[in-house]
Design a protein around this nucleic acid. Sequence first.
DNA 1: CTCCAGATTGACTGGTCAGTCAATCGTTCG
DNA 2: CGAACGATTGACTGACCAGTCAATCTGGAG
Lengths: 210, 210
Amino acid sequence: MAAAAKNAPDKRRMILDAAVRVFARQGFHHCRVSDVADEAGVAYGLVYHYFDSKEEILNTLFLERWQIMLDAIGEIDARELPSRDKLRSVAGFIIDSYQHDPDLMKVIIVEVTRAANSFGAVHLKEIRKAYDGIAAIVEAAREEGSFKSGIPSEFAAMCFYGAIEQLLTGWIFELLPRTDADYERAKDLVVEAICGGLENGVTSRPAASG
Amino acid sequence: MAAAAKNAPDKRRMILDAAVRVFARQGFHHCRVSDVADEAGVAYGLVYHYFDSKEEILNTLFLERWQIMLDAIGEIDARELPSRDKLRSVAGFIIDSYQHDPDLMKVIIVEVTRAANSFGAVHLKEIRKAYDGIAAIVEAAREEGSFKSGIPSEFAAMCFYGAIEQLLTGWIFELLPRTDADYERAKDLVVEAICGGLENGVTSRPAASG
DNA sequence: CTCCAGATTGACTGGTCAGTCAATCGTTCG
DNA sequence: CGAACGATTGACTGACCAGTCAATCTGGAG
C-alpha cells in the first residue's frame, strides 16, 4: 500500500488541486462538481468517493491552508524580534503565499474569509484566530511602549490584516501590478504604511531612498 | 399619477428594501426570489414586473448606493481641508453609511465589492473609482509634502480602504463592538492608525488623552 | 357605465445540478 | 484460479428555483 501510494497518482490530491483552479476561475457557486472532476481528469462519482459534498472540498482546502498560516503567525510571534519585524514577517508570509499559489489564496479569501453568509460564518472561529494572533503581536508592542497605547490592539490588527487582504484583492482584480518585485516591495510598503503611517514623520525606517 | 405616487406605496422601492434585508440575512445565492417577494409582501411575479432578473435587483442596489459614495468622495476632495481631515471625512462617510443602514452596506460589501467571481468583476470599473478617489486625496498630500513620497498613492489608497472595509467586516461578523460610541471612535482611530501609524512617534494628533 | 393600460397575481415550466448507486475495474492474497 | 475489497465509472434521479405568462384587478378617462 505504501508502494501504491508512491506509484499511483493521489486522486484525492488531484481533485483538491483541480478544485482550486476551478473555484478560482469560476467561483464556487458558478462551477459544477463535474467541472472539478473534468479538470482533475477523473470520473464524476470519484469526487464523492473522497468527499461528502462539494462544500467539503472547499472546507478541506481552507482548513488545510489556514492552519499553516495560523502556525506561521504563532511561530513568528514567538521569535525574538522587534514588533515591526514580526508584522513584516506576517505580511511577508501572506504575500509569499499569494505569490506561490495565487489561485488557492484567491479561493480562500473570496470564497471563505470574505463570504459572510456562507463559509465565512462556518469558519469564523478559525478566521478569528488569525486576527487574534496579529492582535497579540500588537498588544506586546503596546505594552513595551513601541506602539501607541491609544489604538486598541484588536482594532489595529483589523486594520493591518484588512490592508493586506485588500492588496491581495488588488492583485486578484488585476488593479495592482504583479511582478515579483512588486510583491517584494509590497511587504515593506504595507508595514511602513501601517506601522509608520502615511504621514511624514520620524517613525519610518531609514530604508533605501527610492 | 403624482397623487398616486403619494398615496400608493412604491412597490418597486418596497421590493428593493426587502431585497436588502433578505440578501443581508441569507446572502444573494442562498435566497430565492420568492423570499424577496414574501419579505416585500408582494406577489412573486411583481418582482419581474419591475426587474428583469434577480441579479438586476442587486445591481440596482449597488449602483444606487455606490454612486452616492463616489459623489461624497469627490465632494470631500474638493473641500479646502488638510489631507488627513479629508481622509477622516471619507472614513466618516463610510462608517456613517454602515451605521445608518448596516444591511445595505453588508450586501454591497459581501455580495459585490468582495465577490471577485461574480458582481465584483461586473462592477470593477465603479469599484475602482472609489479607490482612485481616495488615491487622489493621498496624491495631493504627497505633492504638498505632508504624506510620505515613498508610498505610492494607489498603494496607500488600498491600505486605507482595506482597513475601513475590514472594520465593517468586523462589525458584520460581530467581532468588534457595535455601539454608537464605537462607530464614532472608529472614525478617528482608523485615520490615526493609517495616517499617523501604529508606532509611537510625532505624527499623531494632539487629541484627547483617552 | 365602459374601456383601457398598467399593476398585480401565482401556478406552471424548463433547465440545471448535487448527490446516488449499481456496475466494472484492478490488485492483493489464499 | 478466484474471492474479496477498495477504487473508479458515469448514467440517472429528485429537488430546487429563476423566469414566464395568462388571468385578474384597479383606477382614471371619456
